[in-house]
């Protein structure tokens, strides 16, 4: 079987976990890879814990079961760390990226996680650049920096393109989101 990278997103309904997964898939496809993105199937409710998933591969992805052993986990809301087992199924050499003001060391100790753990203040970056607590796009920047699974420039281009379609009449939203991705790319810490 082909090497497939599996990603799990943790967020709360309304934070854009599903949208983030869709953006990653879209960007992966734009960079010539094959990808899947799917939410933890269900009606999302504002504030409820939700999950979304990605599979990225160089070859056709045929499986349609849920992701059990993601090598990368992104946490959009750090309060979930206490209520959800974000490490479930993650291999010891996996990668965790948490949206928080805290340092990676603090979480490394709290979770006792041996793999790569990154933190980034995605909410702060979003508030600064977009004016709203929408941490999903900055997390894209952090993801690419931390894992290198996608080409940074191509991802930026594709995301800009996608946002241009969605926010035709709000150029400030596009600029803010792109700046947020760039900031998170620079600021993510191990």
């Amino acid at each position: 079987m082909a090497e497939t990278i599996e990603i799990r997103w943790h967020g709360r309904g309304g934070q854009g976990a599903k949208t983030a997964a869709l953006l990653v898939a879209d960007a992966a496809i734009a960079t010539g890879k094959l990808a899947q993105a799917f939410p933890e199937y269900g009606p999302e409710r504002m504030g409820a814990p939700v999950k979304a998933f990605n599979r990225i591969s160089d070859q056709e992805i045929r499986i349609h079961c849920s992701v059990e052993h993601p090598s990368i986990v992104l946490v959009l809301d750090e309060t979930l760390v206490d209520s959800v087992n974000i490490l479930e199924g993650v291999p010891a050499n996996g990668t965790i990226i948490i949206n928080t003001e805290k340092s990676a060391d603090e979480y490394r100790q709290q979770l006792g996680f041996q793999g790569s753990l990154y933190t980034v203040n995605a909410s702060g970056i979003a508030l600064k650049n977009i004016g709203m607590n929408k941490p999903n796009t900055p997390m894209l920047g952090a993801l690419v920096k931390a894992t290198g699974i996608l080409d940074y420039q191509k991802m930026l281009e594709d995301t800009t393109h996608k946002l241009e379609k969605k926010f035709k009449n709000k150029p400030e939203v596009i600029e803010g989101n792109v700046k947020a991705i760039q900031d998170a790319y620079e600021e993510v810490n191990k």
Partner: peptide, 12 residues
């Protein structure tokens, strides 16, 4: 299509 698995899953 299969509900959510395909209907809501993004693919290439």
């Amino acid at each position: 299509t299969d509900g959510f698995i395909i209907s809501h899953g993004m693919e290439t």
